[in-house]
């Protein structure tokens, strides 16, 4: 027993979150016969696709030893801008001007909004050497306030079928949000693994001064990372808005916490330099399955939160003890 455990230890460590996920699925499957159904499977994946979009961006930020608390608000504002433009366009009565937006135009405007906010985060952090926690905390309130101003505190609804297709439609038997989040994961995995940009992100998180002395333009990379995080939050915002056919002024509240949880459960170190996109995806799936399972098992929503917190603690404790030897 001793010997076999020793031999398999590296394998167990490598796939620990997958193993945890498997155990979780089996347990829920045994307790509820509704869990292992195709419909429920797609349901879970569709639910987590928003969190995956945000968490992928969050992973990049955390890898540079930063954090982005503003993603929830950025998500809300981007969704609201897209919805508002789609529904009302831009009216400038003074110039007797009206600009209408197609679905595509609204989507571009939404993503642009997120990118600009993210870029501003990165700019503030690098230009004024602000701690990311503080800069993005400020953006959290700013973007939420702007959302309230833009929506005047009321949901923007009635966005039309072609827009809601984004969040509710199917393509080749797979929900569209799953395609989108899957595509984002694929592209970022490639970006982090195979390009100079990804390499520099890991280097900055591992040792910023060593990266600087190696000729890496730290500020440029960081600004790109925060911009990307903003853009991905905006994609999440479009998915949420489209699924509900409504841009809620308080959409995305506390989403940053779910995404940080996914990043941490996925094994990315909050001090930067160590972690991966695929780990984060596993983390997001674990949270999603857990949420789904607790609902299927009729656990009270209050207990759901407690359980989720305990899972985060356990995940980090296991991760810590497995990397102790390094």
């Amino acid at each position: 027993m001793q010997i076999s455990l020793q031999t398999y230890r590296p394998v167990i460590l490598k796939f620990q979150s997958l193993i945890a996920l498997l155990l979780l699925c089996i347990t829920i499957g045994l307790l509820s016969d509704k869990f292992f159904t195709v419909a429920n499977g797609w349901n879970v994946l569709r639910q987590i696709s928003v969190n995956i979009c945000i968490s992928v961006g969050m992973t990049l930020v955390v890898l540079t030893a930063g954090i982005d608390l503003s993603v929830g608000s950025v998500l809300a504002l981007s969704g609201a801008i897209a919805a508002g433009l789609l529904r009302n366009g831009i009216e400038l009565p003074a110039n007797n001007l009206y600009i209408g937006f197609t679905v595509f135009g609204a989507i571009v405007a939404g993503i642009l909004t997120g990118s600009v906010l993210g870029w501003f985060n990165g700019w503030a952090i690098t230009r004024f050497k602000l701690p990311p926690f503080v800069a993005t905390l400020a953006m959290l309130t700013i973007a939420r306030g702007l959302t309230m101003l833009w929506t005047e505190g009321f949901p923007i609804t009635g966005l039309g079928d072609s827009f809601t297709f984004l969040g509710t439609g199917w393509f080749l038997g797979i929900p569209l949000p799953v395609w989108i989040s899957g595509g984002i994961v694929l592209v970022t995995v490639l970006l982090m693994d195979q390009t100079r940009f990804g390499r520099y992100v890991y280097a900055i998180g591992g040792s910023e001064s060593a990266a600087r002395l190696s000729g890496v333009n730290i500020n440029r990379i960081k600004i790109r990372v925060y911009t990307l995080a903003g853009a991905l939050a905006a994609v999440g915002g479009l998915l949420v808005t489209s699924r509900l056919d409504s841009a809620q002024p308080n959409a995305g509240t506390s989403y940053e916490l779910d995404s940080i949880a996914a990043v941490v459960i996925g094994g990315t170190s909050l001090s930067g330099g160590r972690g991966s996109i695929l780990g984060t995806v596993q983390g997001a799936v674990i949270i999603g399955v857990l949420n789904n399972g607790l609902v299927l098992l009729n656990v009270s929503p209050f207990w759901q939160q407690v359980v989720k917190g305990i899972v985060i603690l356990l995940a980090v404790i296991i991760d810590k003890s497995s990397t102790k030897g390094e």
Binding site: R199, Y202, G206, S207, A210, S214, V216, G273
Partner: peptide, 21 residues
Amino acid sequence: KKDGLVLGLDVRTNISLTNLN
């Protein structure tokens, strides 16, 4: 340890860091 290397990355990645192009 602080400025010369990224200690958490492997030998290969450290050597190529100045020279990725």
